[in-house]
Design a protein around this nucleic acid. Structure first.
Lengths: 137, 137
DNA sequence: CTCGGCCTTCAACATATGTTGAAGTCAAAC
DNA sequence: GTTTGACTTCAACATATGTTGAAGGCCGAG
C-alpha cells in the first residue's frame, strides 16, 4: 500500500543500517556501492536500500583487503554471485578468495626459499656499477 | 686512492643500478629509501650508493606487498636485519613475513567458513530498518 | 508549519604508493 | 672549457581508499 518505488522485497536497509551492520562508516558504504562491491535500489526519494547481503559482502571484503586484494579485484570475484546466492555460490566465491590469498602467500614463500637456498638469486648478476663519481670506497 | 667519501666497501650501486636490478623505477628506489626499506650512503657529491642487498630487499618487498603488507610494515620487519645479515637473520625475516601472510589468509578462510557453516553470522541480528521514507517494497 | 534527522550529491581533504618534470650539481669526455 | 649524462631536491600529478563538510531534499513529530 505504500507510495513505494520498484524495490524488490528484502531491500529495506539504509546506508546507515548497512554501515552499522558491517562496522564501517556510511561514507565507506557509498564508496563500495560506487565501486560495485554492493548494489542498491533507490526509493522514490532517491535513497539507497540494501538487503542483508550488503553488510555481509562488506565484511568479507574488509578481510579480503587484508590479504592484498583491491576493491576492484574483490568486486570482480563477487560478480559471480547471483541476486539470491545459494550456498554453493558462496562456496565458489570463498574458494576464489582463499585460492588467491594462498597463491600470493605461496609466491612469497617460494621467493624467500629461493633466496635462502640459492643466494645468487639475490645478488646482482652482471657487475653493473655506477659511472665514476668518486666513491668505490 | 679515490677522493672517496666515508662509504663502506660494497656500497657501489647507484639508484639506477638498484632500480635495474630490482626491476623497479629509479623513483621507486628513492621512495623506498625515504621510507626505510633500504639504506644508502652518500658520495662526496651527495649521490646514493647501495649494496647488493638493496635490490634484494626491494624484490622481497614487492612480493610482500602482494599479500597485503604495507611498506611501513615491511620496513619494520626488515629492521631486524643487521648490516651484514647472516642466513639466520634472513630466516627470521622470512618467517615473520610468511607468518603474517598466513595469519591473514587464515583469518580470511576462518571468516568465510563461519559464514558458510552458520548463515546467521552474515545476517543482520536485530531488525534495524530505515525510518519511513516510503519503500518497504 | 517548522524542526530534526536522515538522506542526497559534490568537492575538498587525507594517507599510501608512486611517477613526472623542472632546476640545479657534478664529473667525464670531447 | 663546454657539453653530456646521471645524479640531486622539490613540487605537482596520479591512483586507491576513504572521510568530511557544505548545500539541499524529504518526511514524521510537535
Amino acid at each position: 500500500m505504500s507510495i513505494a518505488a520498484r524495490i524488490p522485497s528484502g531491500f529495506t536497509l539504509s546506508v546507515k543500517d548497512v554501515a552499522a551492520a558491517a562496522g564501517v562508516a556510511p561514507s565507506a558504504v557509498r564508496f563500495y556501492e560506487q565501486h560495485g562491491l554492493i548494489t542498491a535500489y533507490r526509493t522514490t526519494s532517491d535513497q539507497r536500500r540494501f538487503d542483508d547481503l550488503a553488510a555481509c559482502r562488506i565484511k568479507v571484503a574488509k578481510v579480503a583487503q587484508r590479504v592484498g586484494l583491491t576493491v576492484r579485484e574483490i568486486a570482480d570475484i563477487f560478480a559471480a554471485l547471483p541476486d539470491d546466492p545459494r550456498p554453493q555460490d558462496w562456496n565458489r566465491v570463498a574458494v576464489a578468495l582463499v585460492d588467491e590469498a594462498e597463491a600470493r602467500t605461496a609466491a612469497l614463500r617460494t621467493y624467500l626459499d629461493e633466496i635462502r637456498s640459492d643466494r645468487r638469486l639475490c645478488e646482482i648478476d652482471d657487475r653493473v656499477r655506477a659511472p665514476e663519481v668518486p666513491d668505490r670506497s
